[in-house]
Design a protein around this nucleic acid. Structure first.
Lengths: 181, 181
DNA sequence: GTCTATATTTGGATAGAC
DNA sequence: GTCTATCCAAATATAGAC
């Protein structure tokens, strides 16, 4: 089961998330396609298992970050870890954070994992002095914007994401200034 | 021909860009599916015609903006027009600016139209004092980040895009400060 | 230009034996 | 749990008549 999901990720890395088919997955696993229904009730159930697994991977990765005592530095660290996670596997990022799969919506249990990721990051923003919802939205959108520009124009490079820390500073400074008024 | 493309856009708005099929398009136009090959050599040729058409629509929209003499105000105007264009038709934005269609790459002629759009916007950034490539990249990525957050979390609203002007100011100020050093 | 008819491929899903 | 066999649906594309 875990092995099948791992195999599916491998296929996704090679052919994109939409390129994962039950026939292809079964071939890669070494069984016949109908046998997959022993593990997943449907294609969407497979996606959901991958969604949950990917989020668990991400949570583990974020857990592994040794956070600085300085709140702003900690925010930069966590966003850098998130960005690295996104860039190292575009197909995984696509399944977890983009909505390209027609009809797929994660189950509530899987979605809860995604929410935990966001909560974790937002908590660090708050600690760094970014408390207004609008400011939080901006940092989230900017991070995603840099990642998506990087992935679609220059996967493997850093032309866009290298500006992340600078933009965080700009935003955090501005957010703090505004919330003090 | 133009009518067929217009029909395809209508379908895209209803069902998403991936939901445009030759059968469905033929039905909407009032002909049989094989007859479409009289107008387009392939599905991708249809996409390419839509891509070119969408970019022409956007260029026309940008042309219609009465630009302020103040360069920064003009930049805000053009980015606001771009954003409004993006939000009013998510499927069109998807075809023009996201890479969700497996195997589709615009032809050089169509791509030239997209490049013209970008050049137009970059020219206004330069006029506003944003000249470094990195700063230009940041503004592009931030604009796209806000648009994509808006479209995927709250299409029809303005929770994210309402911060665009503020972020432009922040970036332009910072870019000018840096380039003066 | 438009049609009918059909080829071809791809993928998800089910039935039922072992 | 895994298999064979099959079904079904959707979609692109082509052949050839009118």
């Amino acid at each position: 089961m875990a092995g099948i999901v791992a195999c599916a990720w491998e296929l996704a890395r090679e052919q994109g998330i939409a390129g994962v088919t039950l026939h292809g997955l079964a071939r890669a696993v070494g069984i016949r396609q109908p046998s997959l229904y022993e593990y997943f009730d449907s294609k969407h159930a497979l996606y959901d298992a991958m969604f949950a697994d990917g989020n668990r991977q991400l949570i583990e990765r974020l857990n592994a970050v040794k956070l600085s005592r300085d709140h702003r530095a900690a925010l930069k660290q966590i966003l850098a870890a998130f960005t690295a996670f996104a860039l190292e596997d575009p197909a995984r990022y696509e399944l977890l954070f983009q909505r390209h799969l027609p009809g797929f919506t994660p189950s509530p249990e899987s979605y809860a994992l995604a929410a935990e990721v966001l909560n974790r990051i937002v908590a660090l923003m708050r600690a760094a002095g970014v408390t207004a919802e609008g400011d939080i939205d901006c940092i989230v959108a900017i991070t995603a914007g840099l990642i998506e520009a990087q992935l679609s124009n220059n996967p493997g490079g850093n032309r866009w994401v290298r500006h992340l820390n600078r933009l965080i500073d700009l935003l955090v400074d501005d957010a703090i200034t505004r919330s003090k008024q």
